[in-house]
Structures are given as structure tokens and as C-alpha cells.
């Protein structure tokens, strides 16, 4: 084991490691594998008590088409995208500005404002729940994608500002000095000098926020209801009530709900990890 590199270990240990690796992985992902297997089972298997044996037939297409046909799951997924994508865009845009302001300029309250953004991250959702919901109802954006987007953008600004500010702070300040000497306007410095350098940070944040928002359940429950605006997390919860013991459908629904963030993760793995581990290495 670390720090001894495995290739310097005796052959026997190396062999053991190579065997242990897949076994550990299977054990680790066992609950998920079970769900995947169940999502292709015919209903008859569950009724006859064949929960863990080999499926009597593979009804993947049937189960998955069934949930799309008989439930609004397609609508839920669409709603999730309608909430997640604008949130990602606006949260990243707003925080690139706040982060820029806090990293580049020296002014009174700089630290205070920065700390308020950071502290906001830790606030328990519950203390925001009643007022935010009332506000949304009064503004007529309760049960709309817009209502969810606005809240998420506002809340995520806290985390994103922390992220952006630290990233910009690490950029060479001389670049900005040089631009100023040449008389470049401040907004052009932001747009033409800093923003292009921030691409990795923007990408990392975007993937991260996508996953956070996609997986949000609490605010989806508080700010939406019914299939018209509800995202997939809340939708899956209500479908679970309807399906009761139709576990093959619950499983298929779960797999579908999990796919977009998983795909995002695999496509953008490098950025994702860069985003998550910001600050984990000095």
C-alpha cells in the first residue's frame, strides 16, 4: 500500500492487488449494480419473489419505455434541464464578476463581503425555507423553473464567489497592472484579460454546479409541485409513492435520474475533480 509503489512489491502482492481491485469495486458498487439488474427484470420476477436470482428475461426496453409512456418522467427530466442549465450559466457568470471584484480591487469591506459570501454557503437551507417560499409565491414564480433558478443562482453565488476569487487571486497580478498602464478600461480587463484565463475555473465550476443543482431535492420539494415544474429528484420521489412495490420501475427511474450527472462526470472528469478539490492541495 501507499507509499510503497505496487510495482516495487513482490510479485505475489502485486497479483493480490490486481485481484482485490475489481472485488473491492464490485462490493463498493453492489447496491447500484443491484438496481441496474432490477431495472431490466420483468415484473413477474418480482411478484414471484425472484429478487436476486438471474432474471427470467431481460425486459430493459419494455421497462424503460413503460416509465416514459405511463409517467411524466420525460417532463421531469426536461424540467431538471430547464432548472439546471440556466442556473449554471447565471451562477458562473455572476460569480466570475464578484470573484473578480473581490480578488482584484482593494477597498473597504472587501474582506467582509467575501466572508459573508463564504458564510452563506454554510447556512442551513431550513432557515431560508419559509421566507424564500413566501417570496416566490408573492412574486408569482412559485412552481416555475424561474423560481428555482433564481434561488439556486443566488445561493450558489456564495460558493462560486469563493472559488472564483481564490482562482483569480492566484493569477499573476502583473497582467492587470500592465493593462491598466496601457489605459484599458476595467470592464475590458475583466472581459479580455481575466476571463480568458479563467476558462479552467469556469469549466470546473460549471460541471460542479450542474451536479449540485441536478441532484437538489430539498428546494425542488419546497418551490415546485406537480409534473409541470418539478425536477426529476422530486418527481422520482412522488413516482416512488405511486409505484409502491414495482421495484423494477423504481430502479429504471433511478437509473434515468442518475444518468445526466454521471455522463457529465465522465465527460468532464478532470474539471470536476479540479473543482471539488479546490483547496485540498496547497
Amino acid at each position: 500500500m501507499f507509499p510503497t509503489p505496487i510495482e516495487k512489491s513482490p510479485r505475489s502482492i502485486r497479483l493480490m492487488y490486481n485481484v482485490a481491485l475489481p472485488i473491492a469495486l464490485i462490493v463498493w458498487l453492489l447496491p447500484l449494480l443491484a438496481v441496474a439488474l432490477t431495472s431490466v427484470r420483468p415484473a413477474a420476477d418480482l411478484n414471484s419473489g425472484n429478487y436476486w436470482g438471474w432474471p427470467t428475461s431481460f425486459d430493459m426496453i419494455e421497462n424503460y419505455t413503460q416509465i416514459f409512456k405511463n409517467t411524466p418522467i420525460g417532463q421531469y427530466i426536461l424540467n431538471s434541464f430547464r432548472v439546471t442549465i440556466p442556473t449554471v450559466i447565471f451562477a458562473v457568470a455572476l460569480s466570475s464578476m464578484t470573484g473578480f471584484a473581490l480578488a482584484i480591487y482593494k477597498f473597504r469591506f472587501n474582506m467582509t463581503i467575501f466572508f459573508i459570501f463564504v458564510a452563506g454557503n454554510f447556512i442551513p437551507f431550513q432557515i431560508l425555507m419559509v421566507p424564500v417560499r413566501d417570496f416566490s409565491v408573492n412574486m408569482g414564480i412559485y412552481n416555475t423553473a424561474t423560481g428555482l433558478v433564481l434561488f439556486h443562482v443566488a445561493f450558489q453565488t456564495g460558493f462560486c464567489t469563493l472559488f472564483m476569487r481564490n482562482f483569480i487571486k492566484a493569477l499573476p497580478y502583473e497582467l492587470i497592472e500592465a493593462s491598466r498602464v496601457e489605459g484599458v478600461a476595467e470592464w475590458r480587463i475583466y472581459w479580455f484579460v481575466v476571463l480568458p484565463l479563467m476558462k479552467p475555473a469556469l469549466a470546473a465550476l460549471a460541471v460542479l454546479i450542474f451536479t449540485f443543482i441536478w441532484n437538489d431535492f430539498f428546494w425542488a420539494t419546497v418551490l415546485t409541485q406537480g409534473a409541470d415544474a418539478q425536477p426529476i429528484t422530486a418527481g422520482l420521489h412522488s413516482l416512488n409513492g405511486q409505484w409502491a412495490s414495482a421495484w423494477h420501475l423504481v430502479s429504471a427511474g433511478s437509473i434515468i435520474a442518475a444518468l445526466p450527472p454521471v455522463a457529465m462526470f465522465f465527460l468532464m472528469q478532470k474539471h470536476f475533480i479540479a473543482g471539488l478539490t479546490l483547496g485540498a492541495v496547497k
Binding site: 409565491v137 408573492n138 408569482g140 412559485y142 412552481n143 409541485q225 406537480g226 418539478q230 412522488s238
Partner: peptide, 18 residues
């Protein structure tokens, strides 16, 4: 038309707001 479970809480909103 509302979904059955969601209605129990949403009725509070529409009675007051809309």
C-alpha cells in the same frame, strides 16, 4: 389538475396567492 400528494401543500399557496 394537480398531483395528489403535492396538492396537500399547494392548496395553501393558491388559496392565498392565486
Amino acid at each position: 389538475l394537480f398531483d395528489h400528494e403535492g396538492y396537500k401543500t399547494s392548496i395553501r399557496n393558491f388559496l392565498t396567492a392565486d
